[in-house]
Amino acid sequence: MEHHDNAPVETGAPMDYREHEKTYDFFLNGTKWSVMVIVVLLLAMATGFFTSAGLIGAAFVFIVLNAAGVFLLR
């Protein structure tokens, strides 16, 4: 007992493509920056835990790599 409807799929309001593109760009940028910060944080934590750099060295690595990431990802 299948029901096949020949009506168009979109029967609601027309899609706002400009707003859709803005949302998609915002999502991609947020994902890009979040991944960069998480990777830099993991590298800084590895530096602090597994080398003799300690907390100050890890903080320095975190700041330097974030600055480099902002420069490279813009």
Results as ranks from 00 to 15, higher is better:
Phe60Val: 15
Leu55Met: 10
Leu43Asn: 04
Leu42Ala: 11
Leu43Lys: 02
Leu28Val: 10
Ala58Met: 09
Phe26Tyr: 15
Arg18Ser: 05
Glu19Ile: 00
His3Gln: 13
Ile63Ala: 14
Val64Pro: 05
Ile63Arg: 02
Asp5Tyr: 03
His4Thr: 06
Phe49Ala: 04
Arg74Val: 02
Met1Pro: 12
Ile56Asn: 03
Thr11Ile: 13
Ala13Cys: 03
Gly57Leu: 06
Ala67Trp: 04
Thr23Asn: 07
Phe49Asp: 02
Val35Asn: 08
Phe62Asn: 03
Ala59Ile: 11
Gly57Ala: 04
Asn6Tyr: 05
Phe49Glu: 05
Met1Gly: 13
Ala44Phe: 02
Ala59Thr: 14
Val39His: 01
Ile38Arg: 12
Pro14Gly: 05
Val37Glu: 12
Ala68Glu: 09
Leu55Arg: 08
Ser52Phe: 00
Glu10Gly: 00
Ser52Ile: 00
Ile56Ala: 10
Ala53Tyr: 02
His3Phe: 07
Leu41Arg: 03
Leu73Val: 12
Met45Glu: 07
Gly12Arg: 13
Phe50Val: 01
Asn6Phe: 05
Val64Met: 07
Ala58His: 00
His20Cys: 05
Asp16Gly: 03
His3Val: 15
Leu55Pro: 01
Thr47Ser: 07
Gly57Pro: 05
Tyr17Ala: 10
Pro8His: 04
Met1Ile: 10
Ser34Gln: 08
Ala53Gln: 06
Gly54Arg: 10
Asp25Glu: 11
Thr47Gln: 06
Leu41His: 08
Asn29His: 12
Lys22Trp: 01
Glu21Gly: 00
Ser52Lys: 02
His3Met: 10
Gly12Lys: 08
Gly69Thr: 04
Thr11Asp: 00
Ala59Asp: 03
Ile63Ser: 07
Ile63Cys: 09
Leu41Asp: 02
Leu55Glu: 11
Ser34Phe: 15
Ala7Asn: 11
Tyr17Gly: 04
Leu72Trp: 10
Glu2Asp: 06
Gly48Glu: 15
Val35Asp: 08
Val40Tyr: 04
Leu41Pro: 10
Met1Val: 15
Ser34Cys: 09
Ile63Asp: 00
His3Glu: 13
Ala44Gln: 01
Asp16Cys: 04
Ala13Phe: 11
Ala68Arg: 00
Gly30Pro: 15
Gly30Cys: 09
Val35Trp: 14
Ala7Gly: 05
Phe62Tyr: 15
Trp33Tyr: 14
Met15Asp: 00
Val39Ala: 14
Thr51Ile: 02
Val9Trp: 11
Glu21Ile: 07
Phe26Arg: 09
